[in-house]
Design a binder for these strands. Structure first.
Length: 808
DNA sequence: AACTGTGGCTAACTCC
DNA sequence: GGAGTTAGCCACAGTT
């Protein structure tokens, strides 16, 4: 009896079956009706290609019992049709061994590093969702359904509700013996339920395994589980004779992929910390800080250094705390909606959710490109390893003069690199000395009449797809559907950018430095030519970065600027290259350094403060610094330069005196929180001199206090003595009182430094801002700072000379 | 011997 | 992933 199920694929893997250890493909997912399902497919075999195999190699492989078949075929290798052999093996894990044998016999190998489950997905051209035809079956799976698949066909994508289980452990500091394990999940998508496992450590671990088995979640989450809870659980399980943690849907263990990520058949291991970090770039990364910020709710803290005492005296509190952690991690993961995003990326890149959640972007590009290459008989090169040759030249950045400008027009080329790839037909399949398109660096590509490249074709399709989805989004009335389309078009954009990302890297399998460098060279040539054309017409170009151009508007009003901007955009749009008017700024400020500016918009929205590069945007700036700078920008951009200088002096004086302006402290926030500095910390071994680095020192003290600090995580601190070298810092633990005295002089200096970017154009540099306060403090009266005042730099004001008509 | 300024160098972060 | 900015350490030289 055969039947069919529409399945959203969550993970893809294979297992070994029977004495012959035959590989069985497993696709795990959820059906349209919301049932969890394990789909099995038998009979698919691994293979790779050997280029120009010698007869000796063919004979040698043919006699080997591991090798099922050696078939001749022709593949395009470096632009030429080349005789190759398709070598089919019995066992996927044998591929590395056999590709080395082929190499020893003088053959290059192709497509010999594609994970078996991906090979299956590509060959059957499966997408994120698929209609599975087959028969109901049974097996050692925890899923609602097991299906023995016979064939697959496409189906409309859908996003089933995923079952997520969150957990958190508490352990003693030294062993680290697990004391309890908190659990949180939503019952049928409704209310959050929590539970706690405690007692003997072994029972806790077995209890968790049992819970996962019974509950059958699609996703296992928790805060910092990748780097903390899972490694500890695995370690403690081994102590009790449990070699692997069978948290999968087929009874197998969890495995560590490349230091950070974990895999388990049928489930996605989704670290909530990692999701928040990638999606929101929070300043502080502790669960307490993130939960406060995101959910407006912290957690109660327990004394971690004395966990054993706490556990003995205050057990209920620890248990509550542990459950709360699991619950908060679950809510944080839901809030950042990264699983939804991963599903959208899965739809556009035709991959299981696990791959778009936990893999590198090159996996997405592989998914699209390998299928296309296979269809056209183009050999799939191996990913280049090692090397690390010189990197290719990137985008062009125009320098900018310091000052305040009025009426500035921002234009940019939409999807510049993809447009260039399409327009210039750039591809590894068009790279040829016979080509008629020559890049500025002398690399030649065939024109589309000679041959349409794979990359241009794919990117053209994606561009079209994005336009269609955007059109649907605009036409859609239902807000939920509209939001879905918005996310989908965003996913297409992410995928397109990822294409450029991997092409620019010299390691990606399908590209080489010549191709990447040609793309950026065309881009630089293009943007520079636009700049010189505009300048030749008398338009002042203020700034430019890669694909954007900032112009001084010839008309000093909104409508005129918009009209002018539109004309310029139209003038430089042709074919696939599209220039758009992005914004019109009423005022625009920079202290003259690239990638840093602040501006106030007039169009398309009125009065929005846009800041790039400055401390306001930086996670390693303290909030007092960012907020001070923001207020100063606000004044300067409203042309209140006197006010900006006055505010700067006042702020520096206040901080110097050890006071934080009341309105800079968040409501019900800690009074010293505006002074917190956060930075990422790596392993000690990654640093030349770890002992001299604040982040390393803060991390050490955090660990001494019993907190989990994992490489790659941000640590937070307050500077208590900057005169020492290295400066003395004390860790800031969100939700716990801070018992040290900040080095106010240091903070005043940093704020002065930051504000001086703005005020020095008006005669107040960092020193004079600081001096002003020192003098005022000493004499208890105002000091006008005249002696310290450097000569005023002339303020740049855009002068009205030209009108629209001068250019068109 | 204790400051001050400079420049090399490492590291982190942001903009496209 | 390249381009670019900034902070902070540290060694070294020149003052005070």
């Amino acid at each position: 009896m055969t039947d069919s199920w529409d399945v959203r694929i969550l993970t893809a893997s294979y297992r070994r079956e029977g004495p012959q250890e035959e590989p069985v493909i497993e696709l795990f997912g959820r059906t349209r009706e919301g049932k969890s399902v394990a789909v099995e497919y038998r009979g698919f075999k691994p293979y790779f290609h050997a280029v120009r195999p010698s007869q000796v190699l063919v004979n040698y492989f043919s006699k080997d019992s591991e090798v099922l078949k050696v078939e001749p075929l022709e593949l395009e290798v470096q632009g030429r049709k080349t005789p190759c052999a398709k070598v089919t093996l019995q066992h996927p894990w044998k591929t590395p061994e056999y590709r080395e044998r082929a190499r020893k016999h003088g053959s290059d190998v192709l497509a010999a590093d594609i994970p078996f489950a991906h090979r299956f997905i590509f060959d059957f051209d499966l997408a994120a969702c698929v209609r599975v035809h087959g028969a109901p079956s049974t097996g050692k799976y925890t899923t609602d359904l097991v299906v023995k698949a016979e064939r697959f066909e496409p189906c409309d994508p859908f996003n089933p509700r995923l079952k997520v289980v969150s957990f958190d452990i508490e352990n003693t500091i030294k062993d680290p013996t697990i004391l309890c394990l908190g659990l949180a999940w939503r019952e049928d998508g409704g209310e959050i339920r929590t539970d706690i496992l405690t007692g003997h450590e072994k029972d806790i671990i077995l209890g968790f395994i049992e819970f996962v088995k019974r509950h059958d979640p699609d996703v296992i989450t928790g805060y910092n589980i990748d780097g903390y809870d899972l490694p500890i659980m695995e370690q403690r399980a081994q102590v009790h004779g449990i070699p692997v943690l069978p948290l999968s849907r087929d009874g197998q263990g969890i495995t560590n992929i490349g230091e950070r990520f974990w895999r388990t058949h049928g489930r996605i291991i989704a670290d909530a910390w990692w999701a928040v970090k990638l999606e929101l770039h929070p300043k502080q990364e502790s669960l307490d800080a993130v939960a406060r910020w995101l959910l407006g709710e912290g957690k109660h803290d327990v004394d971690r250094v004395h966990m054993d005492d706490e556990w003995a005296r205050n057990r209920e509190r620890v248990l509550e705390y542990c459950k709360k952690d699991a619950e908060l991690a679950l809510r944080v993961l839901e809030k950042v909606a990264r699983l939804d995003k991963a599903m959208d990326l899965g739809v556009v890149s035709k991959l299981p959710v696990d791959d778009t959640f936990n893999s590198r972007t090159s996996t997405m590009i592989d998914s699209i490109l390998i299928r296309a290459a296979d269809r056209q008989g183009v050999g799939v090169p191996m990913t280049r390893t090692g090397g690390g040759g010189k990197s290719i030249e990137g985008g062009y950045v125009h320098s900018l003069e310091p000052g305040l400008y009025e009426w500035v027009i921002a234009l940019d080329f939409s999807s510049m690199y993809p447009s260039i790839i399409i327009e210039k037909n750039i591809c590894f399949t068009t790279l040829s000395d016979a080509g008629t398109i020559e890049s500025p660096m002398g690399v030649r590509f065939m024109n589309p009449q000679q041959r349409v490249g794979l990359l241009p074709k794919i990117l053209g399709d994606l561009l079209r797809q994005r336009r269609e989805v955007k059109a649907k989004m605009k036409a859609e009335a239902d807000p939920e559907r509209k939001e879905y389309y918005r996310r989908l078009q965003d996913a297409v954009k992410v995928l397109m950018n990822a294409f450029y990302g991997v092409l620019a890297s010299s390691f990606y399998r399908f590209t080489n430095p010549e191709i990447g460098a040609s793309i950026t060279a065309f881009a630089r040539e293009n943007i520079k030519s636009v700049i010189s054309q505009l300048e030749a017409d008398g338009v002042r170009v203020i700034y430019s970065d890669t694909d954007s151009i900032f112009l001084e508007s010839p008309s000093k009003d909104k409508d005129g600027s918009v009209a002018f901007g539109r004309k310029v955009a139209e003038r430089f749009s042709a074919g696939n290259v599209n220039m758009e008017l992005e914004r019109v700024f009423r005022s625009f400020f920079s202290h003259g350094k690239k990638k840093r500016y602040a501006a106030k918009t007039a169009w398309p929205v009125e009065d929005e403060l846009i800041v790039r590069g400055y401390e306001i945007r930086r996670t390693d700036a303290f909030n007092l610094q960012s907020e001070s700078q923001k207020r100063d920008f606000d004044l300067v951009l409203d042309n209140d330069t006197e006010g900006a200088v006055r505010l700067a002096k006042e702020l520096v004086a206040e901080i110097h005196a050890g006071r934080i302006p009341q309105d800079m402290v968040l409501e019900d926030g800690e009074p010293l929180e505006p002074l917190v500095i956060s930075r990422t910390v790596s392993e000690d071994s990654r640093y030349v001199n770890p002992d001299s680095m604040s982040n390393v020192l803060a991390a050490r003290k955090m660990r001494e206090l019993g907190y989990e600090v994992v490489p790659g995580m941000k640590v937070s601190w307050i500077v208590v003595d900057a005169k020492k070298a290295p400066m003395h810092v004390e860790p800031w633990v969100s939700g716990r009182p801070f018992e040290f005295k900040p080095d106010w002089e240091y903070y005043a200096r940093r704020v002065a430094q930051t504000l001086a970017y703005v005020t020095e154009v008006y005669g107040w540099d960092e020193r004079s801002l600081l001096m002003g306060t020192v003098q005022a403090d000493l004499f208890h009266e105002n000091f006008d700072g005249e002696k310290e005042e450097p000569k005023k730099v002339e303020v740049l004001k855009t002068d009205k000379k030209l009108t629209l008509e001068d250019f068109f």
